[in-house]
């Protein structure tokens, strides 16, 4: 059995991550590092310390507990912090929190078992998301195969940065639906904003799409509309061209969500990308226009 990787959380009830009522497992760790990442807690592979200044009741127990002297009233010195997490154990309010814990296969299956009646009536199931679930290909394969054995519908959300061979061998047989993120088509810009080349992503999408047309696992391309990043005229046009070229006729366009800022700040990060408002209806309509010949979901 594969070693259980870290997860950020298991969200019991989601209506936004696939059909029906779903539970979502957010894995920790991602090969990309997009500068707008909406789930910053899923970026790093290791455990992290989150601090929510607004929730702090100034009990002071953490300051006493910290052996590294990294805590002061209402502040975390990230340089000094050794992530020993002693402070979290004594924090009464939950303002200090460990991000990342090991979830065993059995635990995730218990959750699925618990909510299965809701999946059944709604046509829902379990979604694996992240972070990037395929970083843990062996565990993922075991998990999804166990879920299928329970009769649960499975959905993979991926950024597409994985070994196709490994994916096809270990995971694909147990996936009912793939949601595949397409980000920036220009490789140079992709490297700059997402931290690595997009070549493998695009090749993987093409391959999975070909297989899906031939009766393989259905794949849906998703584009998060990030102002100044993915939602530029050139990029949307290029994305539409790429998808057309692959033969795809459906695409999901996701709205930018500014709430990620707060999450990033709690982890000690300073978001470099600082748009704080939602998309306007005009921006949304403009983006959709590039996909006029697609079924936009």
């Amino acid at each position: 059995m594969a070693i259980a990787p870290l997860i950020v959380e298991i969200k019991g009830n989601s209506l936004d991550d696939g059909p029906g009522i779903r539970s979502v497992v957010f894995f920790k760790g991602c090969p990309l590092s997009c500068d707008w990442c909406h789930n910053p807690e899923g970026k790093e592979l290791h455990v992290e310390l989150a601090f929510d200044a607004g929730a702090c009741v100034h009990a002071g127990a953490c300051v006493k507990a910290c052996e590294a002297g990294a805590l002061d009233a209402g502040r975390v010195d990230r340089e000094r912090c050794t992530r020993c997490m002693l402070c979290v154990e004594v924090c009464p309010s939950g303002a200090l929190r460990t991000v990342g814990r090991q979830a065993t296969l059995a635990e995730i299956l218990r959750v699925a078992e618990r909510y299965k009646p809701f999946y059944r009536t709604s046509g829902g199931g379990v979604t694996v998301s992240g972070g990037e679930p395929t970083l843990h290909m062996e565990f993922l394969g075991e998990l999804l195969s166990a879920l299928k054995a329970l009769g649960v519908h499975t959905l993979l959300e991926t950024c597409g940065q994985f070994s196709l061979e490994s994916y096809l061998a270990r995971v694909d047989p147990y996936v009912d639906q793939v949601y595949f993120d397409i980000k920036i088509l220009d490789d140079e810009a992709h490297r700059r904003h997402c931290g690595s080349s997009n070549a493998r992503t695009l090749a993987n999408f093409r391959a999975l799409h070909v297989r899906s047309v031939a009766g393989g696992t259905p794949v849906l391309a998703r584009i998060a509309l990030i102002p100044e990043r993915t939602a530029t005229a050139e990029n949307l046009e290029a994305a539409a061209r790429f998808l057309r070229d692959c033969g795809a006729s459906r695409v999901a366009l996701l709205d930018y969500n500014p709430l990620w800022h707060a999450k990033a700040v709690k982890l000690g990060g300073t978001p470099c990308f600082a748009r704080s408002s939602w998309l306007t209806p005009e921006e949304r309509a403009r983006a959709r226009a590039y996909f006029a010949d697609f079924e936009v979901v």
Binding site: L15, I21, P117, F118, R120, T121, S122
Partner: peptide, 14 residues
């Protein structure tokens, strides 16, 4: 309606 139906029906089933 489908979402509401799913919640209500499952609740009754349980």
């Amino acid at each position: 309606v489908d979402q509401m139906h799913a919640y209500v029906k499952t609740y009754f089933e349980l």
